Each structure stands twice: as structure tokens, then as C-alpha cells.
Simulated scan of single mutants.
Amino acid sequence: MLSTISFFNILLPFLYIIVLSVYAFDFFSEKSKFTHSKRIFLFVTLISHILYIIFRTVEFDHTPITSKFEIFSLLACSIAFSYFLLELLTDIRGTGTFILFFPVIFQIVSSLFIEHNYQVPEVLRNRMLGIHVISALLGYSGFTISAVYGILFLILYKNLKTNKFGLIFNRLPSLEILEKLSFYSVLIGFILLTVAMIIGIIWLPSAFPDFSYGDPKLVGTFFVWIIYCLGIASKLIGKWYGRKVIIFSLTGFVLTMVSLILTSTLQNTFHSFY
């Protein structure tokens, strides 16, 4: 099976590059030749990536979360899967070029530097931990995609204000649709992060008898969850729309990144084992 894993490890960057190229060609070309078929390219790539993750999990008896290069591959799959889900829900296919660039970078780095033979702590072999981490990565991927749509919204908004109507203006969806995509991405990310938190709360006491709910990463994750919870409530109850939703999305993403960076630099956390 190791040879199969190595094959997929080499294949995946090329698949993602092909997918990005198809989406980019369809976006920038005057004639949209891949409007319907490009989703098939993405689907095949995702299936290949999921198989790679399954094969790797079975071969090494742990979910691929034990090194940053394994996590990079999971991030690539998470972002691509989140975008694929969003495209299915909305049937809006013109923004993939701006999202699928990230999986390409993450998977290239992962494939170049990932190792295929090493020992890991026993706790990292726990399947609940794997589900917990994957759910969290999917959640943060949703927030990342939301931020990208937020930036596209602001670019389009500025073009409208300055009466600049170029290629990007003509190809991008309307401001209303970009706002909707940004909010749906936040909603997907929030739900998946909530799932990750619930799994963590249930699993932590049995895995780490001496853990503390004051752990920096737990506090940081709860802080992020509260921010997005308040933003979603403001949108649904307070009837936020337009730039307010976008500013919330971008502010939430910046605060999320700051929280992740700060908590990752702290050593007094049980999360430091990975």
C-alpha cells in the first residue's frame, strides 16, 4: 500500500493544478467551455484525495494529523471540499479560481516534504481525535473561504464606486451573491467548528485526565466560536446585509488568525503534542 500512497502523493498536486487551470480558463476565457464539466474535475480530485487520506490512515494506523505537512494535505482537501459543498448548495461556479489556489499551494508543499515512515505518540492514533481535527480544519476552511469572498466583494464594490468595469467585474457574481456566498461559508464553518468542539469536550476527559478547560487553545477556539456566533445572530436577527456582513466576515477571520497564531506559540497547552 505504501507504493499506492506514494503514487497519490505525487498525483494530487497535478490534479489540483489541473482543476485550478480549468476553473481559471473558464473564468478568464470569453467562451465558457467548462462551465458544467469543471465540477467533475474537482469531484474526481476530491475522491482521489479522500482515498489518499484513507490509505494513509490505514497504512500508518493514525489519521494524518501528526505533522504540519500531513495537516497541510488535510487543509488542501478541507478547503476544496468546503468550496465543492458551497458550489453544490448555491450552483454558483464562477469563483473557484480564487478559492482553489490555496489547495494547490498546500498540497504541493505537503507532497514535497511529507514523510512516509515515522513513529507517533499513541494518543494520535485515536480516531475521535482525527474526526475532531478534521472537523476543526473544515470549519476554519469555511471561514477562510468566507474571507476570500469578502475581499472579492470589496473589490467589486470599489469598482462600482469608481465606475471601473473590467474583466473581473464582468465575471464575478453580483455583490448580493458574493455576500450570500460569504455568509454561507461562515455558516458552514461555524457548524463544523461546533461539531469539532462538541467532540473535543466529550473526548478530552478520557484522553487527558489532567486537562484544563482553561487551556489556551480551548479558550482561543471558544473566543472564535463566540465571535462568529454573534455575527451570525446579527445577520439573522439584526437583519445585517451588504458591507456589514462582509466587514464582520473579514474581522472575524483576522481575529481567528491572530488567535491561532497566539495560541500556537504557547507551550503550556496539551495541544502541543501535535
Rank of each mutant, 00 (worst) to 15 (best):
S212C: 02
L152M: 06
W240Q: 12
K244P: 11
I145M: 05
Y213A: 12
T162V: 15
L192M: 07
F222N: 14
A147E: 02
L230W: 11
T251P: 08
Y149E: 02
G139D: 00
G238I: 11
W225S: 09
L192N: 00
G231A: 13
G238H: 10
P173Y: 03
N163F: 14
S206T: 15
L175S: 04
A233Q: 14
V245N: 03
F223R: 03
I191H: 01
G238M: 09
S212N: 07
L172Q: 01
G220S: 03
F248P: 03
G252Q: 02
V254Y: 09
I246P: 02
G220P: 02
N170I: 06
L255V: 11
S141D: 07
I198W: 10
N163D: 15
I188T: 06
L187W: 05
L230S: 14
F222Y: 11
Y228S: 05
S206F: 15
I191V: 12
L236I: 12
I202P: 10
I168K: 09
L260H: 03
L204H: 08
Y157D: 14
V245K: 00
L236F: 12
E176H: 15
Y149G: 01
G189T: 01
L218Q: 00
I237K: 07
S182T: 04
W240P: 05
S141M: 04
R243L: 15
K217D: 04
L154C: 14
W225G: 05
Y157W: 15
F253D: 02
T256I: 05
D210Q: 01
L250K: 04
S212D: 08
N163W: 11
G189N: 00
L172E: 00
I202S: 09
V186R: 01
L260D: 02
I177N: 07
W203P: 06
I237C: 05
K244S: 12
G238F: 14
F222R: 14
L236V: 08
L218M: 03
R171D: 04
L236T: 08
V254W: 10
N159A: 11
F248S: 04
V254E: 07
I198P: 09
F190V: 11
I232H: 03
L138M: 13
F153K: 01
I177D: 08
Y213S: 10
G139L: 00
P173V: 07
L204F: 11
G150C: 04
S206W: 15
V245I: 10
W225F: 08
E179R: 04
S234E: 12
G166E: 12
R243H: 14
V258N: 10
I237F: 12
G142M: 02
L250Q: 08
L137D: 04
Y149F: 15
I247P: 10
A207V: 11
I151A: 12
S212M: 04
C229N: 13
T263I: 10
L172F: 06
N170G: 07
I201M: 07
L260F: 11
